[in-house]
């Protein structure tokens, strides 16, 4: 038996919204102390990983580990029926083939429940080791979203280079080129800060369309953390309050012939 009640139902709504453009089907893996999702896009060049600690829920009960396979588009359709202030409760029997989603309005005067049919998804999760990255950039998530959106006008790929000077996002396309440079900024508000930690300069190229879909998670948190090392996937992490995160991994473009 799995049951999880989330007062801030909005978070779950936004999480699924942040997934649905990247992955078609995924498993919600529930264990005693956390709820996690890991899935790759159809091309397998990016990976999304969600983690919500049990402590973040009002009520969290999971008798035994369970995998709930769902279609993200269908899940998103059901979650559209939930209000932003609703309390969302997820329920599933151990051998269930459906996930019950219950939406309670803040005044408890409206209770809706939906059942989403589940499916068997045969996907073994990838083991992602804890690694030290050469560069870590923390910046306002809104700023990152804006940069990506702006650069997408000019081209399909962007170069992210992290140097002493700061972090530079560059694009070059048919109609011209564009550069955005962000410098360290120790603002008063934590959310406005740009903090660059760098051991060695790193320069990597990425497909902008993927980065753009990562920014769908912007509403989940005020800041985003980019972690980069040469020739390994970039990590775009959106911390979810104090109890979880959504992390996107994207393989860099390595042009042998360019």
């Amino acid at each position: 038996m799995f049951e999880a009640r989330l007062t801030q139902g909005k978070i779950f709504k936004q999480l699924i919204e942040a997934l649905k453009d990247l992955v078609q089907d995924a498993n919600i893996d529930c264990s005693e102390d956390e709820l996690s999702i890991q899935a790759m896009d159809s091309s397998h060049v990016s990976l999304v990983q969600v983690n919500l600690q049990a402590g973040g829920f009002d009520h969290f009960r999971c008798d035994r580990t369970i995998s709930l396979g769902f279609n993200s588009t269908n899940m998103s359709k059901i979650l559209k029926c939930a209000g932003n202030d609703d309390v969302i409760t997820l329920k599933a029997e151990d051998t269930a083939d459906a996930l019950t989603l219950m939406f309670e309005s803040p005044g408890q005067d409206r209770i809706a429940d939906f059942e989403l049919k589940l499916m068997d998804i045969d996907a073994e999760p990838l083991g992602i080791p804890d690694t030290e990255y050469q560069c870590t950039i923390r910046m306002p998530s809104g700023e990152f979203q804006r940069i990506i959106r702006d650069l997408q006008v000019l081209g399909d790929t962007c170069v992210i280079s992290c140097t002493k000077e700061g972090v530079r996002f560059s694009v070059s396309g048919d109609l011209g080129t564009g550069n955005v440079l962000l410098r360290n900024n120790a603002a008063e508000k934590e959310e406005d800060q740009v903090i660059i930690e760098m051991e060695e300069p790193v320069e990597l190229t990425f497909a902008l369309r993927y980065l753009n879909f990562f920014t769908k998670a912007t509403s989940l948190g005020g800041s985003v953390i980019l972690s980069m090392s040469p020739e390994v996937p970039v990590v775009v992490e959106y911390p979810i309050e104090e109890f979880g995160h959504i992390k996107y991994y994207l393989a860099p473009k390595i042009d042998d012939d360019a």
Partner: peptide, 16 residues
């Protein structure tokens, strides 16, 4: 999306 030059995630992370 043109994924030329992008390696699969499985080449970076192993299945554990």
């Amino acid at each position: 999306v043109n994924t030329k030059g992008m390696k699969s995630m499985t080449s970076f992370f192993s299945t554990k």
